[in-house]
Structures are given as structure tokens and as C-alpha cells.
Simulated scan of single mutants.
Amino acid sequence: MCSRLGASLLLLLIFLRPNCAASLPGHNQQVRSQALKRLLEVFGMVDAPQSPHRVRQPPQYMLDLYNAVADVDGVTKQPDLLVGNTVRSFLDRSRSQQLQFFFNLSSVAKSETILSAELHLFKLRGRLFRDTLHHRQHFCQVYTWTHDKKSNKGLMVIVQTLAGQQTNNHFVRFATARDHHSSKQPMLVLFTDEERRGITTSSSLKDMGTENPFISHRILQNKASQNRNTRSLHFQGCQRHHLYVDFEEIGWSGWIISPRGYNAYHCKGACVFPLGKNMRPTNHATVQSIINALKLANDVASPCCIPDKLFSINLLYFDDDENVVLKQYDDMVAGSCGCH
């Protein structure tokens, strides 16, 4: 059997909307649960994050970064813009002094390597004109605030004049989470690279196919149309077809910010002799199609219609701590198809 793009992603085709899942027989609910678990593995997660307890606006910096990296469907348009494959933003959790900040980094996985970090602070204007003028030229130094070698209490910022004198907090002030708009809150941004392990499709899911009793209505319509055209489809050459992944149907729209879904595409069609250039065959596929057509060897099937170019997508979402994360996933969209 020919292997096609993202066997685990194709499991999306059998998902019901969450409000319909309760009507499924016990066995089918178990299969659906397994499918969702495998899909989470594709996205590098054990469990789906909880939706935020209250409506939250993502930091504008993260929205701008996502829009710079991805198109409207989340497909990467500037692959070299990110450092690593994950960007995590953390808002200040401290409620104390002006120049001390606390960021809870417990959500950073052990498999992530921190490549760089940015501390985003919004400096407020001086209260008096003479104060602003006198201390206009200064610089900030950021220190790790530790109690001992085993604990890290956060970050402390020290503001000094060019002469090396520490200034008073009255002259240089930063916006705080307690007193200012969310767009001006102190934020720590980490650029990390997460190790990814490939997943395999278990036999129980591999054999579900399109005969599973809880295929969504949209897919049932597509299948009925395909059955009416079985003969013509058999002779259609290898092509790329639409395969839309709807995060709302899966029940993930509460924690995913963007995109709302994306077109993964899939490859379908015959790779029979003679293979034209439009089917983008490899030399091996061409030879295999000849052997198959002439029956020169037993058990030699025709080549497979599979993706020969894959694109990455980007997900912007809330994690369990309500931090906003931008993560890039490789090989999620079939860019083109060919006979191999």
C-alpha cells in the first residue's frame, strides 16, 4: 500500500464535532480517543492545553511575529525568520518592586534548548521635564536574581547613568502588570529549539480507513461523490487534493489562537505506465511502472502517488499556564505530489 502524507493527520477526517461524540458506541469512542492522542503527538503534546479561564488578548509582539512568519493558513512563508522552532512568551508575575521581574518558566520542556532570550520593557516618560532631560542618557543592566545556587527568583534590572551611577526609580520607570495595559506589560521571550521525534501510526489506527462509522458529514459527502466516479478516478493521474484540518471540529479552538485550521492537502491518483512529466516521476518510478506494465516480475506494484514537497505550518496558542507560544511544525502540508 502506498504511503501518503501524515497518516496521523488523515485521522482528522474521522473526527466528529465534540457535541456529537457522546452518541458514539463505546468502541468508537475509544478509537476516537486514540486518534486524538496520536494527533497530539504530531503536535508534540501529551495532552491538549486547557482553554484560558478568561478572554485574553495575545501580546501584540507574538501576533506580529506570527503574521511575519506565516500566511493566513499558518503555512511558513519566511522559513529563516525564526531562531529555532519554538517561541515562548512569559508575562511578569511579580507584584513587588519596579525593577524586579518574575517569569514562570516551568512550561519549558526538557527537550528544548534555549537559543536566545529577550526582555521586553516599556519605559514610561519622566514625570518632570527636568528629570527626563537630566537622565535621558542611561543604560540598563539585567541580572539574574538568585537566592542560592538551586533557586532562581527572577530578573532584576539596574539602571545606571553613563558615568556608572545607579539612578533612583523615581527617574526611570517601567510599566507594570498591575498598573498598565497588557500591551505594555514586562515580557520575557525565549527562542528555543525542540527536539522532535517522528511518530508511527499504530495498526489499530492504520486500518480504520474511510469505513469507520463516525466519519464527519463533509467526508461522507465526498466519499459518496467519489463512489459515483470510481471508474473515472481510477484513470486519473497523480494529483494534489484538498484536505482541510478544522481545529474547531476537533474541539481545539479554545486554546489555538491561529490559524483556525489549515489545508494539509493529500496525494491521490494512479501512477500507471506511461508516466508523464506532469506526474513528476523519479527514474526509479519510471522503471517500476515499466516492469509493472510488462509483467516482467511478480508482485511488483505500480509506483505510489505521494508528496514530493512538504511545507511547515505555525501554531500560535495558549499553553496550560496561559502563556502564548509560537511553534513551527515541519512536513505538515503537501506542496506537490509525484509518482515514486
Rank of each mutant, 00 (worst) to 15 (best):
P213K: 06
L233N: 15
G254W: 02
G251H: 02
Y265F: 13
R240W: 01
I215N: 10
R231G: 02
R231H: 04
C238R: 01
G251I: 02
S216V: 03
R218L: 14
G209M: 03
A264D: 01
R240C: 08
H242Y: 09
G251C: 08
S258I: 04
N229S: 14
I256F: 01
G209E: 05
T210V: 15
P259A: 03
W252A: 06
R228D: 08
Q226S: 15
Q236D: 07
N229Y: 09
R260Q: 13
G237W: 00
W255A: 03
N222Y: 03
Q226G: 08
P259T: 07
Y265L: 01
P259R: 00
S232T: 14
M208V: 15
H234V: 03
N227D: 15
F214T: 08
H242N: 12
F214I: 08
R228F: 04
L220D: 12
E211D: 14
E211A: 10
R260V: 06
H241N: 07
G261C: 10
G254E: 13
R231C: 06
N212E: 12
I219T: 13
I219N: 10
Y262Q: 07
H241C: 06
G251R: 05
S225C: 10
D246T: 00
F247W: 03
Q236T: 10
N212M: 11
A224W: 05
E248A: 15
I257P: 00
H217C: 14
Y244V: 06
H234D: 04
K206D: 12
W252K: 04
A224S: 13
R218E: 15
Q236S: 09
N227G: 05
S232H: 05
R228S: 08
N212Q: 12
I250P: 03
N222Q: 12
A224T: 11
E248N: 11
M208W: 00
R228C: 10
V245N: 01
F247Y: 06
R240V: 03
